[in-house]
Amino acid sequence: MPLLEIRQLSKHFFHLSALSHVSLSVEPGELLGLIGPNGSGKTTLFNCVTGVLRPSRGHVFYQGEDITKLTADAVYHRGISRTFQLIQLFPEMTVLENLLMAAQERTGTLFTRLLRRDETEETDRALKLVEYLGLSGVKDNLAANLSYGQQKLLDFGMALMPDPQVILLDEPMAGVNPTMIKALVTHIQDLNARGYTFVVIEHNMEVVMSLCRRIVVLSQGEKIAEGTPAEIHDNADVMDAYFGS
């Protein structure tokens, strides 16, 4: 059974169709690439899967459960986390607080969250993550005062913090310098080897081709190709979509 399955998903904004009848599935432990020209609906797909947007038609299944109509927080509780193309942080919280925030809702009930004050376990995990991502030096800085690359890493860290099963990365390398890209690629591969499942939207073809074993291509809201990097590379439709015919 696929871990995450998207069936015939469509999304319309007014009369504009952002996604039409997209189906794809993600196997446990996979590292799937999602590519396509600007405006092809990649981010909209992430938004529909994570409950940020309600799809107009179609279904999303996670471990066999229909999660199409769940709100974003419920999807998160199932174990799907994500990053954002335009970074979304809590700007007036520190790096550490941002990470703690990403974890706090994963355990306990509403009322234990009011009553239980001890947070050593979560703080330990956050500190480990901070170190892993090389953010130790800025862990007490406000998120708003970080550099762009650091914010990108923090966003990534927040996706890892709750120990999710599936992580959706929306252009994690965009605007990041080459050294940082290398670090990020290593992190993703490392985590994937440890069993995390990834879906990555990425424009940097070199990175996608080397990182992913399977790639799905969207164009104008439709899935136009799916296959190994080599197959995608040789696919005429994909070249058309990117460079026009």
């Binding site: 940020v52 927080d73 809590f90 007036e92 709750p162």
Partner: peptide, 13 residues
């Protein structure tokens, strides 16, 4: 600070 992000870290609005 960021309602949408809060929901995506599991905060039940």
């Amino acid at each position: 600070e960021n309602e949408m992000r809060a929901e995506v870290v599991g905060v039940s609005l």
